[in-house]
Nucleic acid binder design. Structure first.
Lengths: 121, 121
DNA sequence: CGGTATCCTCGGAGATACTG
DNA sequence: CAGTATCTCCGAGGATACCG
């Protein structure tokens, strides 16, 4: 039904960042300009098709800049846009949160204590 | 397959936050304690099964606290854990980034326009 | 080399029904 | 009311092949 108009900006970013590849690609691009084949080498398990698809998605989102040079064989380069670079620390923050949360949880901060109800089962 | 050990914390958070529901549920829980049926009402389009599944995922990630009260009919409450509350501003930051990035880039075409169709009920 | 089109499969997710 | 189990179906995504 297409109600995915996502009035909420968070829903919209998540549509771009969700999945296994977007954040990974952003991270490899953080290191600098990469060609299509470089990214394939960085991510051996992504399929040719998916890489192209994800890159187009990131490009449409304004995160990635695609630059095509003529010639033969073809040569195309990918970089983070300024906006793309600005999102990196935000993603980092999530990673840091995870490390902290995971560590805290493994510690002693654990589970639920039954509140007045011995859960049978 | 199963190489998803995700040595990278970012890959791991994204496994939890990816998809349509996780961030939405976190947002509804931000408002305070909610029961299973409250969350279904908040998200009319999520299926019963998926809601249960996503909640268990968030619980396992230490984001959501599940509290079961005995009695009949059953009563279960969901809250954000402290860690869950700490992740909220990080997600907000992504939303802010999106608004800024989207605005800067596509300025004209991109409003909240919608063909209307206010599906009331 | 980078990208697209085609086919095909596998599992994500909805509907339904049942239990506590 | 909250949760699980079963069945089913659709589409995301892999493999392959071809074009610029």
């Amino acid at each position: 039904m297409k109600d995915l108009v996502s009035r909420c900006p968070i829903e919209e970013v998540m549509q771009v960042l969700s999945g296994r590849w977007p954040t990974l690609l952003i991270y490899y691009l953080k290191d600098g300009t990469k060609r299509f084949s470089d990214l394939r080498r960085d991510n051996p398990t992504i399929s040719h098709k998916m890489l192209a698809f994800e890159l187009r998605k990131l490009e449409a989102a304004g995160i990635v800049q695609r630059t095509e040079f003529g010639g033969y064989p073809l040569r195309v380069e990918y970089d983070l846009t300024p906006a793309g670079e600005r999102i990196v620390p935000l993603i980092d923050a999530l990673g840091d949160w995870w490390e902290e949360a995971a560590g805290a949880e493994a510690d002693g901060t654990r589970e639920t204590e039954s509140v007045g109800a011995p859960q049978v089962r």
